[in-house]
Amino acid sequence: MLWWIIDGAILLSVEGWVRVTAYRQWRLLRRRQRRYGVRRVRIAAPRLADEKFLWRRLFDHDPRFTVLSDKIACKDWVREQGFAVKLPRTLWTGDDARDIPDAVWAQPIYIKAGHGWQMNIPVLSEPADRMPLIAQANEFMAQSHGLEGHQWGYANVPRQLLAEEALFLDTDLIEIKYYTFGSIVEQMVISRHGDPTTSARWLRQESGGYARDDRPTTVSPIIDVLPLPPAADEGLRIAAEIGAGFDQMRIDTMTDGEDIYVGEITVYNQGGRAHSQGHYAEAPLNRSWDLRRSWFLTHPQSGWRAIYSSALRRRIDARERQGHGLA
């Protein structure tokens, strides 16, 4: 009982620190959670997936997050780990799109910012006028997600551009995003970029296998009704292997149905939230997310963070003993 009281005081103090340090993000989360009937937001001892994402942004400063958030360095990391995966080729890197060689412009590419998300320009045929594309790409150099929303992993990523080969031009591109919790893949989100784009969420079943969810995703309001492509099984293997080293990760892949490539490894899903599930304790994105596997709780901390990490671990252990699982 004494430890519970002491830990409660520690967690309450940290909760106050969160509200001062990240008030805007905390307020946005509270507003969103209240729409779903969640009356109290807890970040110091998070229970829900959206709370855990904000906790990660504020506390879990795994050095690998910087590498994974860097679209250029991430590919090198995947190769260095020895994962048996295919990766799209990087054809050019630099800090000024005016330096992209003519030979690169002549082939189908994506121009991307290596230091952020949703900063991609498809150039699927050689443009008659490059200047608007160059200007758009160079604008990416002024943006930093590390300074926005406390997405710590991006903070130290060098600002660079890259030109990457475009894959599967002769067929509709299929994207599959695997949500991993250790080696467990709790859900897949598949998107078929045809006309129209369709998308579906596939959830892991306790009996084994995956079943399609009946709710639309953020990608498209049209639910994809086709079976999973054959490559999905290979993607599951890849995602489980990469995800095994983390408490939670999203592995983004591209496929034509047969061949599959790893496109990115995403630390902060949708900037740090779980669409339609982040408020629900029994949701797949919460029930397997064990913060005790995180870098913050598996590596020594210093100062007040050391005191806090011990209190948080004890609180999670106590929840589990009381039958509340990880929520």
Rank of each mutant, 00 (worst) to 15 (best):
9 A>H: 15
11 L>C: 12
13 S>H: 12
20 V>H: 10
27 R>G: 10
32 R>N: 10
33 Q>E: 14
34 R>M: 11
35 R>E: 05
36 Y>M: 10
36 Y>I: 14
39 R>P: 14
40 R>N: 09
40 R>V: 15
53 F>R: 04
54 L>F: 01
60 D>R: 09
67 V>M: 04
71 K>I: 00
72 I>Q: 10
79 R>E: 04
90 T>E: 13
94 G>A: 00
97 A>S: 04
103 A>L: 09
104 V>T: 01
107 Q>M: 09
108 P>V: 13
114 G>F: 01
116 G>R: 04
116 G>L: 04
117 W>G: 15
120 N>E: 01
123 V>F: 05
128 A>K: 05
129 D>T: 06
130 R>F: 00
130 R>S: 01
133 L>I: 05
146 G>D: 14
151 Q>R: 03
152 W>M: 12
152 W>E: 13
156 N>R: 06
157 V>I: 03
158 P>A: 08
159 R>G: 00
161 L>H: 11
162 L>W: 01
163 A>P: 03
164 E>K: 11
166 A>P: 01
177 K>E: 10
178 Y>W: 04
180 T>R: 03
197 T>R: 12
201 R>V: 09
203 L>A: 09
203 L>H: 10
204 R>L: 01
209 G>L: 02
213 D>V: 12
220 S>M: 04
220 S>L: 13
221 P>T: 10
222 I>F: 05
225 V>S: 14
230 P>Q: 00
232 A>E: 11
241 E>H: 12
244 A>P: 11
245 G>A: 09
249 M>D: 03
254 M>R: 14
254 M>W: 07
256 D>E: 05
257 G>P: 15
261 Y>K: 08
268 Y>F: 08
268 Y>H: 08
270 Q>K: 05
285 L>N: 14
285 L>H: 08
288 S>V: 06
288 S>H: 13
288 S>F: 13
297 L>T: 07
302 S>Q: 11
307 I>V: 13
317 D>Q: 03
319 R>S: 11
322 Q>M: 08
